[in-house]
Amino acid sequence: MKLGIMVNEGPYTHQASDSAYHFTKAALAKGHEIYRVFFYHDGVQNGTDFTTPPQDDRNVVKRWSELAGEHGLDLVLCVAAAQRRGLVDEDEQKRHGKTGHNVAPGFRISGLGQLIEAGIQADRLVVFGD
């Protein structure tokens, strides 16, 4: 089955991203297709490469990146939400004259249309948030 995932909270403060990760991993292991994981609201913070958690804690961002690498997951950060919260890719860095870019491997910034499209294409959409 084709599943869409929406993550509405950032890492660490709320469990939403952890739950979404474990769900996604289990779905992939069972042979389901993850059409897209869409990060919205503070959820875009799951895509910052600048995360450096202590060594004895999980690295939520890296974990998503690795899962994307292994399974070709499409991890999308909402551009409007990302701009508000300081998530910047190379294009956005140039366009807005920022000092750096911080989108982690496996993530891309795109529009809200990607969320709607996931709703249309996937058999189920599961929302994780607060």
């Binding site: 089955m1 599943l3 769900f23 289990a26 779905a27 292991a29 069972k30 389901h32 058999d123 189920r124 599961v126």
Partner: peptide, 8 residues
């Protein structure tokens, strides 16, 4: 796994 099964 059970969570995934409930969703599908």
């Amino acid at each position: 796994d059970g969570f995934v099964e409930l969703v599908t």
